[in-house]
């Protein structure tokens, strides 16, 4: 483990330039460029905000703001998982030719996703101001939630990106799970809807639910996040991250031959 940290540190410039490449390369050929990382979640949120008030009986008062606070972290999650799963495969050319710590690739995807998410947080700020909700000191919990989400996602993509090399179905299975998870995560609805019912514990099992609830608490409801649930998620994510590095390290020896 110590060796890995040292190795990653000495390759930090590669990590940096990879993050840059991810961010710059993503929207390179498109007309609106980086603006798409704002427009996309915004449009999605607007669609939901138009449709769901008809389906759900009672929605939250500032429903667009409510949804946007759920959608943006969710977009960070899905884009990282989807890109992260195929990142080793997509870099086959370079993996076959040069040695570098392969962990750099998933870490770069997750980090560039985080930067993208932080930029798009401008939208959240915008909606918080114009809906009159404003800000509270609870926003100081934001780094803790971000860290939890970062670790959770890195743990997942370390495993899925390595598995993808051996079983190409991984990406399709992942896609399906993400679609399913969308409905099992309180994004378009509030977790409070299920308070006291049978499925509350089911939602509590979902780390993304805990993460999104925390964002909602500090930004939308302006309360403290549920620290117990958040710390359990953080703890579980750390274990996942450890397993992720272990599995990745085990499988990476075959990357150059299998891709």
């Amino acid at each position: 483990m110590k060796e890995l940290v040292h190795n990653l540190y000495s390759y930090r410039l590669l990590l940096k330039s990879n993050v840059k490449k991810e961010i710059r390369g993503k929207y390179k050929a498109s007309f609106l460029g980086i603006l798409w990382s704002f427009i996309n979640p915004l449009l999605t949120a607007l669609v939901y905000a138009l449709v769901f008030p008809f389906i759900l009986k009672n929605t939250e008062p500032h429903y667009v703001t409510f949804i946007i606070i759920g959608i943006l972290p969710w977009t960070y999650f899905t884009s990282t998982i989807i890109q992260g799963t195929t990142v080793i495969l997509n870099n086959a050319g370079i993996i076959k030719k040069v040695y570098f710590p392969r962990e750099i690739l998933p870490i770069a995807v997750n980090t560039s996703g985080l930067i993208n998410f932080l930029i798009s947080c401008i939208i959240i700020a915008f909606f918080l101001i114009f809906s009159g909700i404003g800000f509270s000191l609870n926003i100081l919990y934001l780094p803790l939630i971000l860290l939890t989400q970062y670790i959770f996602q890195l743990g997942i993509i370390l495993i899925t990106s390595a598995l993808e090399i051996y079983v190409r179905d991984a990406e399709y299975i992942i896609n399906f799970f993400i679609n399913m998870l969308f409905y099992a995560t309180p994004i378009i609805y509030s977790a409070n809807m299920f308070a006291g019912s049978h499925i509350e514990w089911l939602i509590n099992l979902n780390p993304m639910a805990s993460i999104i609830n925390s964002y909602r608490n500090i930004l939308y409801y302006q309360t403290m996040p549920e620290l117990k649930s958040l710390f359990i998620t953080l703890g579980a994510s750390l274990i996942l991250l450890y397993l992720g590095f272990k599995i990745f390290n085990k499988l990476q020896k075959g990357f150059a031959e299998e891709v």
Binding site: L13, S17, K21, G93
Partner: peptide, 27 residues
Amino acid sequence: LELGAGFHPDFTGRENIYFNASIFGLT
């Protein structure tokens, strides 16, 4: 082993120096 592995065609030679050398672990 293979020269120019990891060159990015759209980047300039100078940028690619940074990119390629970072693959070799330089700061």
